[in-house]
Simulated scan of single mutants.
Amino acid sequence: MSIQRRPVAVVTGASSGLGRGFAIRLAARGYDLVVVARRRARLEELALELRAEHGVAVLPLSCDLARPGAPARIAQQLADSDIRVDALVNCAGFGTAGHFAAEDPDRVEQEIAVDVTAPTLLARLLLPDLMRSPHGLLLMVSSTASHQPVPSLAVYAACKAYVTSLSAAIWQETRGSGLRVLALCPGPTDTEFFEAAGSDRFKVGRVAGVDEVLDAAFRVIDESDAPVVTVGLRNRVQALAAKIAPLRVSLALSERATGGKVPVSA
């Protein structure tokens, strides 16, 4: 597959939700796509749609990012196909909910692999290409949960705090290179996320539409050089409050928002 006539974007989590939305928006902007997710059939459907509607080349890569070595295998597949990447959208992710003492250790390990390890290594492996590109873009999908510790969503919030911190550091390190780096922090969004998590504890406040989040992301990409964007005025106010409030107050408010204390045996 040769897709070097146009800029190329790699989008993880592209089988649904924000990942699918980013793939569609980037195709409309003239990017060829490498779409990554576990569900091969959905990727094939998306590829057919993007080819027909936008005339772009699309390479579906079925991959479970929870598996060790997955980022390296993706990078090797790109190299073997002589694909140089101009944009990386790390969108794949999931969350677990409940008291930390009752979490399934195997599921927590998968959560950290998908939410932390995979985006970190993909960003590192593809960063040389991104920095050489005149269209260089590294977009890391984080969350408003990254702005404070969240009891009952402890692992998810910690993972997203890492993503936001890492993105901001890369933004600073690469300033002047031409690479655009952005951590996108939406609140609850109308995707399959809640179904995958098996919990409504993530529905803290208003649930935004996918297009609303995408509009906010591309507005910042096009018009600003900010390293982090929090989607929604209420979410921005809450993020600011979390930064200035004493930690005990922030923790109590977060715990209340996610439904209060959970029994250790839950």
Results as ranks from 00 to 15, higher is better:
Gln4Cys: 12
Gln4Gly: 15
Val8Ser: 01
Val11Ala: 01
Thr12Ala: 01
Gly17Gln: 00
Gly17Val: 10
Arg20Ile: 01
Gly21Trp: 00
Gly21Tyr: 03
Phe22Gln: 01
Arg25Glu: 10
Leu26Tyr: 00
Leu26Glu: 00
Gly30Phe: 08
Gly30Pro: 03
Asp32Lys: 05
Asp32Phe: 01
Val34Arg: 03
Val34Pro: 02
Arg42Trp: 06
Leu43Ile: 01
Ala47Lys: 06
Leu50Thr: 02
Leu50Val: 03
Ala52Ser: 15
His54Lys: 10
Gly55His: 13
Val56Arg: 03
Ala57Asp: 12
Pro60Tyr: 05
Leu61Lys: 04
Ser62Asp: 14
Leu65Lys: 07
Arg67Ser: 12
Ala70Thr: 12
Ala70Arg: 12
Pro71Asp: 03
Arg73Glu: 14
Gln76Phe: 04
Gln77Pro: 07
Gln77Leu: 12
Asp80Thr: 13
Ile83Lys: 04
Val85Glu: 08
Val85Arg: 04
Asp86Gln: 10
Asn90Gln: 06
Asn90His: 02
Cys91Thr: 09
Gly93Pro: 01
Phe94Met: 05
Gly95Leu: 04
Gly95Thr: 05
His99Ala: 15
Ala101Glu: 14
Ala101Asp: 13
Glu103Cys: 13
Pro105Thr: 10
Asp106Met: 08
Glu109Arg: 15
Gln110Ile: 01
Glu111Thr: 12
Glu111Asp: 00
Ile112Ser: 01
Ala113Pro: 03
Ala113Trp: 07
Thr117Ile: 13
Ala118Gln: 03
Pro119Gly: 06
Pro119Ile: 02
Thr120Phe: 13
Leu122Ser: 09
Leu122Trp: 08
Leu122Thr: 05
Arg124Trp: 11
Met131Asn: 02
Pro134Arg: 06
Gly136Met: 08
Leu137Thr: 13
Leu137Asn: 08
Leu138Ser: 04
Met140Cys: 13
Ser142Phe: 03
Ser143Pro: 02
Ser143Ala: 03
Ser146Leu: 07
Pro151Ala: 12
Pro151Gly: 10
Ala157Cys: 09
Ala158Ile: 09
Lys160Thr: 11
Lys160Ile: 07
Thr164Gly: 11
Ile170Met: 12
Thr174Ala: 13
Thr174Val: 14
Ser177Arg: 10
Leu182Phe: 10
Leu182Asn: 08
Leu182Ser: 07
Gly187Asn: 07
Pro188Phe: 06
Thr189Phe: 09
Thr189Pro: 06
Glu192Leu: 08
Phe193Leu: 02
Gly198Phe: 09
Arg201Ala: 15
Ala208His: 03
Asp211Ala: 15
Asp211Asn: 14
Asp215Asn: 13
Asp215Met: 03
Arg219Glu: 14
Arg219Gln: 13
Arg234Asp: 12
Arg236Cys: 06
Gln238Ala: 13
Ala239Arg: 02
Leu240Pro: 00
Ala242Glu: 04
Val249Phe: 11
Val249Trp: 14
Ser254Val: 05
Ser254Phe: 01
Glu255Ser: 11
Arg256Met: 04
Val264His: 10
